[in-house]
Write a protein that binds this DNA or RNA. Structure first.
Length: 821
RNA sequence: GCUCCGGUGGCGGAACAGGCAGACGCGCAGGUCUCAAAAACCUGUACCUACGGGUGUGAGGGUUCGAGUCCCUCCCGGAGCACCA
């Protein structure tokens, strides 16, 4: 039987670590602190393969930093509020709280079997009153600063989950959780003013360049969607109407004017224009369409002439005013000037409603397009034409000048717009943190005083979950009725709960001092640990969670609670674990359970397999990876250790062989260290395997014993320990050590031992390898050429040819360039 | 449509900063051990070959003594955004 029995080894070391409280971060250590954070899990069922990969990465980072001499904080917690608990409650009559905490225990048990070096003493759950008390406190801080407000708006509504959704939670017009087509609903809801931070969310990304994946930064940049242009004032009758445009240089090309159907003036203008009934019908038609419908491929535009005209401030022209569904109320001012010659959407609309087209930019090098027949708008660069005094200017210059001139007349100004909208955080759900606001008929909105926090969730048995379409908390009478904190009169609590992304936007601060019941986080602890040194997690949170957390940090900074503006100094995103090319799921029948793999091969094999599968940021297809390969490696390594230990110092090793192994060991230290620094665990493992093969050859073929193999195996044990920690402890122990390998120092290499004395270098003739020759390191070009010319094969290829050039890359390669003699 | 990634053996993937393409592993083939099998171990494994060599990193061009790597054009795949004025 194999010497490697993970089922005996793993529990033994897990207990030893725990007994020694090895991974509890010490607040008073004088080692440099290192905050290793992974995105905490949502507890649905047991851990899945995606968790295993994410945590294997996170733990490798933390254990590596510990070996590098840092005092590491590697905490664990659960993002434990959320919809699935409630859905389970509705469909199976379970108690959301019981369901959630049972799942957490299942998670925790599997995590312990995986041997993750969590600091369990900092464990937190966002659904604990001790936690959400401070989530509510944070909400109040934002509210008092004017960054949380209630407004009526057309919001995204998921008819299946019976709740509103943030823009970020709507994917292709569908609910990100259940894929139901999202509809619009006009509701009064709570928003957080993330748009106030749009410019800083963008500009502070400079601090993250190089330490965050470029892809994540790009996603955030796109999401924020900054554009520069101008606001220009048109008039309709005696009413001023402001439009936003990125192309004020095309103002002279405007031939009509469009407002969003929901524009506040639209109905009044329609009435004035004598088309009120048509407008009402139009509005109903537009609102019946979902976003999915509106964004469908055909992109046909629905519009209605309102019977009134808008006056263009640059030339006094009268432009017909339309309401159309391709203009959105939520962006800019909900009104646009339309330049069909230079905007594709406007051109499409003009063709559909037979409106005139005018060219005001002459495209560089091209003829003027024919405005009567063109079907592709002229979007490129060029010189301004048909624009009065501005003719002949470059479009960039015209943009500047026209805007400046309008500003002088009080009819315009330079303006910046963002795609980003305020964050809608109200949810009509039970299992979340109640919004700590009381509505009083006399006093209006009143924040719950800090001393009264937390606003506790009522028990689930007080809730009528069958009451769909309304906030579940509204059905708990005892919860709803409250005294107004301001006047003491009878009042009602807000019955919405907060989006769970609010909970997860600050948990990294709570980890610093998770047991404090007088503050959300202690200033000292935050000063010690924050910002996070290394954050790891899935790319799926590239926008939502990371953007919200950055926003919270900036808000807390402005309120004086923290002295930094970015929470996560470095970020690494791992790919997803899939099976046969598709996401794993029970319904697809392609689910692989971590427990099954642990039962068969042990946790180390599972962890190492995940990290060996390929670059960590790439997806892993479980169908392509081999647990048996990794199990064989760990078995072979263990067996080799035993063979080494059992053999006496061995027959006197040949000096040369000993030197080879020593050089291989030092080269491996150098290369694996670089790989760990770059998160390249797949190649790090490959190099540890290669060194293991070298040790094997040294012992078995050369009969080498003693220091060389001992040192190589010690190095392997330490460098393997972040990835396969149990077997690394076992090997370390069998090599005769008593302390934990987890507490050793990462090995260092000696440059002088890397030098090879004899090298094999290729000799090329005209770029083709014709032989390899053996040279001494540092040999001169002349010596090498002389050696090369002794090679039969090289000589044959030089016959009848004249050498015209020599390329000698010292110690690497010789190339003889020839031509026919 | 726009933006950003990527394309290397049967498979996952290696290749510093332009210098011997295919590390490491899987799979496969052959062998040792065995009554046999499993396990373990050993050897081989890009393709073609008249055994000299030739061809190969999606396709085609270019730069260079030399290109998987740099430049241009194109094809394919993936991701994100998408009536954002």
């Amino acid at each position: 039987m194999s010497a490697y029995d993970p089922h005996e080894i793993e529990p033994r070391w897990e207990k030893a670590w725990e007994d020694a409280r090895l991974f509890v971060a010490d607040e008073r250590s004088d080692k440099p602190p290192f905050y290793a954070l992974h995105m905490f899990p949502y507890p649905s069922g047991d851990l899945h393969m995606g968790h295993v990969e994410a945590f294997s990465l996170a733990d490798a980072v933390a254990r590596y930093q510990r070996l590098q001499g840092r005092e590491v904080m590697n905490p664990i917690g659960w993002d434990s509020f959320g919809l699935p608990a409630e859905n389970a409650a509705i469909s199976r009559g379970a108690d959301p709280e019981a369901w959630t905490y049972a799942n957490i225990e299942t998670h925790a048990a599997t995590m312990r079997r995986m041997g993750f070096a969590w600091d369990w003493s900092r464990r937190l759950h966002t659904s604990d009153p001790e936690y959400y008390k401070w989530t509510q406190w944070l909400f109040i801080q934002l509210y008092e600063a004017g960054w949380a407000y209630r407004a009526q708006a057309d919001v995204n509504w998921c008819p299946n989950d019976q709740t509103v959704l943030a823009n970020e939670q709507v994917i292709d017009g569908r609910c990100e959780r259940c894929d139901t087509v999202v509809t619009k609903k006009s509701l009064t809801q709570w928003f957080l003013k993330i748009t106030d931070f749009a410019d800083r969310l963008l500009s502070d990304m400079d601090q993250l360049t190089g330490t965050w994946p470029e892809r994540v930064l790009t996603l955030q940049r796109n999401w924020i969607g900054r554009s520069e242009g101008a606001e220009v004032t048109f008039t309709v009758g005696d009413e001023e109407v402001v439009v936003y445009t990125t192309r004020p240089d095309t103002l002279y090309g405007a031939t009509f004017f469009v407002v969003a159907p929901e524009h506040p003036s639209a109905r009044e203008w329609a009435a004035r224009g004598g088309v009120a009934d048509e407008f009402d019908a139009f509005l109903r038609r537009v609102q019946a369409r979902t976003d999915v419908d509106r964004q469908a491929a055909d992109a046909s535009k629905d519009g209605l002439f309102l019977g009134v005209h808008a006056v263009n401030p640059v030339n006094g022209e009268q432009l017909p005013v339309y309401a159309a569904d391709y203009v959105l109320m939520g962006y800019g001012t909900g009104a646009i000037m339309c330049v069909p010659g230079h905007d594709q959407r406007d051109l499409d609309f003009a063709r559909q409603y037979d409106l005139p087209v005018r060219i005001v930019i002459r495209p560089e090098g091209d003829d003027l397009p024919d405005p009567r027949t063109m079907s592709v708008a002229a979007a490129g660069d060029g010189l301004v034409v048909n624009s009065g005094a501005y003719d002949g200017l470059g479009w960039r210059e015209a943009k500047q000048r026209i805007t400046d001139d309008l500003a002088d007349r009080g009819l315009g100004r330079h303006a910046v717009n963002y795609r980003l909208r305020d964050w809608l955080i109200s949810r009509q759900r039970y299992w979340g943190a109640p919004i700590p606001i009381i509505h009083c008929a006399a006093c209006g909105e009143v924040a719950v005083p800090v001393d009264d926090l937390p606003v506790r969730l009522p028990d689930a048995n007080e809730i009528d979950f069958s009451h769909s379409g309304e906030a579940p908390l509204a059905t708990a009478e005892a919860f709803v009725h409250a005294a107004c904190p301001s006047c003491g009169g009878a009042a009602r609590r807000d019955t919405d709960t907060m989006d769970t992304f609010v909970d997860s936007s600050w948990y990294y601060l709570r980890y610093c001092s998770p047991h404090r019941d007088d503050v959300a986080f202690s200033a000292d602890a935050v000063a010690r640990w924050m910002p996070v040194d290394q954050y790891t997690g899935g790319i799926e949170h590239a926008i939502l969670h990371l953007l919200y957390s950055r926003f919270f940090t900036k808000a807390l900074h402005d309120l004086g609670h923290v002295d930094f503006v970015e929470p996560f100094t470095r970020l690494k995103s791992q790919g997803q674990v899939i099976m046969d090319g598709a996401a794993m799921s029970k319904s697809r029948g392609n689910l692989v359970e971590p427990r099954g793999i642990i039962d068969e091969y042990g946790a180390d094999t599972l962890r190492a397999t995940m990290l060996f599968a390929g670059p960590i940021e790439d997806d892993v297809d479980w169908a392509d990876v081999s647990t048996t390969g990794m199990f064989k490696f760990l078995s072979r390594l263990t067996r080799l250790t035993d063979e080494h230990v059992a053999s006496p110092a061995g027959p006197a090793a040949e000096a040369a062989a000993d030197e080879d192994l020593r050089r291989a060991t030092h080269r491996t230290i150098r290369d694996v260290t670089a790989d760990f620094d770059a998160f390249k665990y797949n190649t790090a493992l490959a190099k540890l395997m290669a060194l293991t093969n070298e040790v094997s050859a040294a012992i078995r073929e050369r009969g080498q014993g003693g220091d060389g193999p001992q040192h190589a195996l010690e190095v392997i044990a330490i460098m393997l320990s972040p990835v396969a920690p149990h077997v690394a402890e076992e090997i370390w122990n069998r090599l005769g050590h008593h302390g934990f390998v987890a507490e050793q120092r990462w090995p260092e290499y000696d440059d002088s031992l890397l030098v090879e004395h004899t090298l094999e270098v290729p000799v090329q003739v005209d770029g083709r390898v014709r032989d390899t020759i053996s040279i001494t390191a540092g040999a001169s070009q002349d010596d090498v050429v002389a050696l090369a010319q002794q090679s039969d094969n090289v000589r044959r290829h030089l016959a009848d040819r004249e050498t015209v050039k020599l390329i000698w890359v010292p110690d690497r390669l010789l190339n003889l360039v020839t031509r026919p003699a």
